[in-house]
Every structure is written in C-alpha cells, then in structure tokens.
Design a protein around this nucleic acid. Structure first.
Lengths: 344, 344
DNA sequence: ATGAAAGCGCTAACAA
DNA sequence: TTGTTAGCGCTTTCAT
C-alpha cells in the first residue's frame, strides 16, 4: 500500500471544498474564519481517516518560519553539553520548537559549515558556544536579523546576547578551597586555547595562589593533544617529576579523565593523598575512589536562561533594544578528593 | 547594515540575466548547459561578493529532498549513543547529508511525535532505536517509502533493515568469564522492559549460569525507576540481604552507575572482592577503582554499517529488493573488577 | 547560449 | 461562509 502523499489540494478536491477552507480548518482557524461546523467536521474526519501529514517545507517556504532552533557546542557527547541540550530541547518542545544539535569540535571551519547549513535551511534561531574564530560569522547572523544567543563564552568586542558563568570567581574559589584544606603546592592543568573562559579560570587560580603567597604551577596541554598520546606524555612527564605536588586542579573535564588515569598509573596509592578538584561535574565522579570534588556549573539555570532569552527574541522578531547578558555562578561540590589534609 | 536576503531573482535582475542562468551556474551546471565563460564568471563573482546563501527550504520543496537524516535514540547524552551519533554524523557529512539527533526517552509518545515531526519536514531517512510500541509507526514510514534503518533492537515480525549485536552470545560470554574466574554466585541486574535485546542478555546469563549448574539470581528494576529513589531502594535492599553474592553483572550502563554507588555505600571494602561486569563500556570505567570490566559494543562498526545501509537505500530511492539485516558481535574487555578469584 | 514559465504545497489577502 | 488567486524561492522543461 504505497499511499501517495496527500496534499491539501487533494483533500479539498475529494471533499468538494477549497484548499483555503481545508487550510483554515487544519490550522485551527475554523471558528475564527466562520467555517460551518459541518464542513469543519468533514475535514477533520477525513484528514484523520487518511492520516494526513502537512508538508512543513512548503509551509516554511510560505511563512518564512521553520520552528527549528540550532544548539551548537564543542561536543554534544560531553556530559555538560548534552545535559544542557536535553533541558533546552524540553523547553523548546513545549513551545512548539524543535532543536537541532550539533558539535563543532571547537573548529572554526566546522562551525562555519554548520552555521551556513542551518542558515540556508532558514532555522529560526541559534544557541551557540562559539569557537574562537567565528566572530564575523556570528556578526553576520546578527546583521541578518537571526536570533543568536551565545553561552559558555562570548566575544568581548561583539555586542551579543549571552549566558556565561563567572569562571574567575568559581576558579578562585576552587583553588581557595584546596588552600583552606591544607594544600600548598597546587598544580593547574589546562589547555593552551586562548578562550575567555579558560583565561578566566587561570586568572582565578593564579590570584588565589598568589594571594596566599604560594607558588603557581601551570601545565598547558595543546588543545589538539588533550586526548592524544602526546598529551598523555606531557601529563606523564609532568606528574613524574613534580614530586613536591600535593594537589591538582583541572580546568576542564576532558583533561581530568586522562589526568586521573595517568596519576593512577604512576602511583596508585598517591591519588589518595593528592588533593584533586576539577571543573565540570560528572555523575561518575561520585562513584570514583576517591570521589572527586568538582566545580559544577548550574546546567539547569544556564539552559533556562538561554531559552528565556531565545524565546524573547523570537517573540519580538529579534527587535529588542538592549542586549541581554547573563552571568551565573558555579558551585563547588567538595568530595573525598579534596578533604582537609592533616598538617605534617 | 540589514541586508535583505538576496534571492536568485534579485541576482538575475542585478546582472541582467535570467534566474535560470544563475541557477545553472550556482549548481555547477554552467559548462554542461553551455553558459558562456564570461557569464559564469560574472555570476560567480557577484554571488561571492554579496555572500549569497541559497534558500534550501525552497530547493527542498522543489526537489523533494532535504539532505537531512534523523538519528533517534533513547538518550543522546548516553555515551554509547552519542559516540555512534558522532561517527554517523561524520560519514553523513562527507556525503552531503546533515544528521538531526533526538532522544525518545524510550517513550512511544515522544518517538511518535518526533517521527511525525521529521516526516512532516520531509527528511530523507531515519536511523532509529525504536521504543517498543512504535511498530506501526515504523511500518507507516516504510509503507510511505521512507528509508528506515533500525539498530540496537528491532521488531521480529516486521521486515526492516537493521543492525544489531548478538546480545545473547555477548551476555553468555560475559557471564562465563565471571564463572571461569571463580565466581559462583552471580547476580544479574537488569530492567523489566520486555525489549528483545534485554531479554537476549538475560537468556545469555541464565544459560551460562545453568550450564555450570549454578543458581541464577535476577533483579529486575522497573524501567522508570532505574534512576529514581525507588530504584535505588530496590538495589540497596537487594545488596544488603544478599551476602552470599560474589559477583554482579549489570545488563545496561545506566544501572551500573547507581549500582556501584550503592555497593560502595553499603560496604566500601566489599567492592574490591566482588566480581563486576557491565554491559556497555565507558571511558571512566578505566579510571574507576577497581577498573570495571565491560562488554563493549563495536560502536565504529555499528555506525559504519548503519550508514552503509542508509546510503544504499538513498541511492536506490529506497527500491531495494532484499532487506538488509546485520548482526555484529560485542567484545568483553576484562579489567580489574573481574580478576580471577583465589579459591577459598 | 540563454530565457520564459510552470509548479513543488502551503497560506492569506481579497473577492464573492 | 467559502473560493480565487498570488506568491514564497527554487529547479527544470521546453522554447528560442
């Protein structure tokens, strides 16, 4: 039973009414347009019977709207991003919008390709973690009146809507936590990407450490090597020779994974005494031994703010006078890995 | 600078040629249609200069194709699914297709909503992990000549293309591994969903255990409670009173998380002696203490097979005579949690 | 070597 | 209360 896709015209012909009438009924404008009860019912019954599905491509071409939003992050399989994606999806869904997820792998080319692709497909809005080199592409979208909200990071010299967390404060606080618990030689492991949020986290660490008159130790892993053999070698080399270390603070969760693994390899026992804190929480940190202290970003709040702004822009056809910029704070979740150390 | 979106017509007017000519050039059919070099260059230069972006919605309406595929799973934030999604995305990308990811939360209503939504938007194909009650919806898609490939599970009484793994063999093998390493009282923790792949995993466990004359112990957590308080209570109750247990085999990764946590809560030391194996690998199992043995599904191969089939269907406009059904095997990765036990 | 025109399926202003 | 009609932006056949 290969049922050829039925169109509004087919239905109209079949029922002996006009396409307009069918369209009105189907869009719930039957009453408003004063279509008779009888016709409304006939249309309803027939479309239900044949299980009619409208062609949204045609509708979009006509109306200029697709009811689709794009959510672009570095890597959608990362827990932090996928969790936020899910919340956003739910909110969007309840408002009649679909969300298209995509990963840009922090690469400008891929970001650009994706933005283009979706722009060409006329999506209604973008929620984006921008890779560093797509400032002009973002600007272009905005200039073309497409609703855009950034998050996680933004371009200081571009007046965009965004939602971020106070990375500096969160990082300073996490470092202070280790210091308060007796750790004195705290290493900061980060990537070399010159992204605002990473620089803020480093500043937070440096300020907290120097405030206490302690010595900073920073290891920067090239971004492309965060999960490669070379990156692991760098970590291994670092941990092997730094025996004065009593704590490690990871700036991002993808470094924590390999970092912990390598620390274990080198000395399975050492991990129990080492102070450990990482940025970005993960469910499995609760079941690790030791349980890992983490700076948890308020994912629920971030997602809600993003959608609040986006829906606001959509509602006002992107004609809002002021730029909406929100900064939330992150919460340190102390666990076993950063317990207070007995003074030696 | 609010540049109104330029259309082919605008370009044609501007250059004093016809829309046809512009369209031909833009689609690389310039040579073929014998458009003069001069005109081709003029069009190329102008469209580049104004940074023209075609309206794919209009194109889709005209051509009937969207170059979009849908990838629907239970939960895209689950590592297993998101990893496969990424590989699929890459392959699709290289063939000019976009992939739309979505999570059905294993709910029929949500699955149906999503299928409808994308069907209405005329996507070119579906790659789906079906929730149990959407057999008829899948059938409808197929009857409407939409390319569909299922994976992870399928409907035995519906003749569909699919890619699955041999859950029975993998599960039997995992259980046997525990038995071979000296464990005698092995519990199987699973959900109560009556899904083919879960039933196969259970059968594998039961057969392996009974073959050795051992006693099976099965705990079934209601699906909706796998991550709820009630589910945790069930696990807690189970582990508290079963002191004869020397090993646990989890049928799915979302039970492993809470399971491990609760075992630790009850007796932090016990976990070292308990044999543990889980279905579905996770990066963090490598850094847990102990490291956790897991049945790893061949994600790369699954993704590649799925796309091979999908591209085949797309190429032949879904007119293929035979149904393509692929069964792959999963690999047990033995780690610290299932080391051979010293005989008592 | 290029253009005119039809039409994909839908919506909505305007007619009747 | 319902129908006619003109597009939305693009592709593509058929003319010229």
């Amino acid at each position: 039973m290969r049922n050829k896709r039925q169109s509004i015209k087919d239905i109209a012909t079949k029922l002996g009414v006009s396409p307009t009438t069918v369209s009105f009924v189907l869009n719930g404008k039957g009453e408003e347009k004063k279509i008779s009860k009888e016709v409304i019912n006939r249309v309803r019954e027939y479309t239900t019977a044949i299980n009619y599905k409208p062609n949204m491509v045609a509708r979009s071409l006509r109306t200029g709207r697709t009811k689709i939003l794009v959510f672009m992050v570095e890597d959608i399989s990362n827990y932090f991003f996928s969790r936020i994606a899910r919340i956003i999806e739910d909110i969007a869904y309840s408002k009649g919008y679909r969300v298209l997820f995509c990963s840009n792998e922090n690469q400008d080319k891929r970001s650009r390709d994706l933005l283009n692709l979706f722009y060409e497909r006329q999506v209604d809005g973008f929620i984006i973690i921008p890779s560093s080199g797509i400032r002009s592409d973002i600007k272009e979208l905005i200039d073309n009146d497409i609703p855009v909200v950034l998050f996680d990071r933004y371009f200081p010299d571009l007046d965009t809507h965004y939602v971020v967390i106070d990375n500096y404060a969160a990082s300073k606080n996490a470092t202070q936590h280790l210091i308060d618990n007796g750790y004195r030689n705290i290493a900061f492991i980060t990537t070399d990407v010159q992204q605002l949020q990473m620089l803020d986290r480093k500043r937070g660490y440096l300020d907290a450490v120097s405030k206490e008159g302690l010595q900073p130790t920073v290891l920067e892993i090239p971004f492309d090597d965060t999960d490669s053999k070379k990156g692991r070698e760098l970590l291994r080399g670092f941990f092997s020779k730094k025996d004065g270390l009593d704590a490690v603070y990871f700036s991002t969760n993808y470094l924590t994974r390999s970092g912990l693994e390598i620390i274990k390899e080198i000395d399975a026992q050492a991990i129990a005494d080492l102070g450990i804190v990482t940025f970005d929480d993960n469910e499995l940190f609760r079941i690790n031994t030791p349980t890992i202290s983490a700076v948890a970003q308020p994912m629920e709040a971030i997602a809600q703010e993003l959608m609040r702004i986006m829906l606001h822009l959509l509602k006002h056809k992107n004609k809002v006078s002021e730029t909406i910029q929100v900064t939330l704070s992150a919460e340190l979740i102390p666990r076993g890995s950063s317990l207070a150390k007995e003074k030696v």
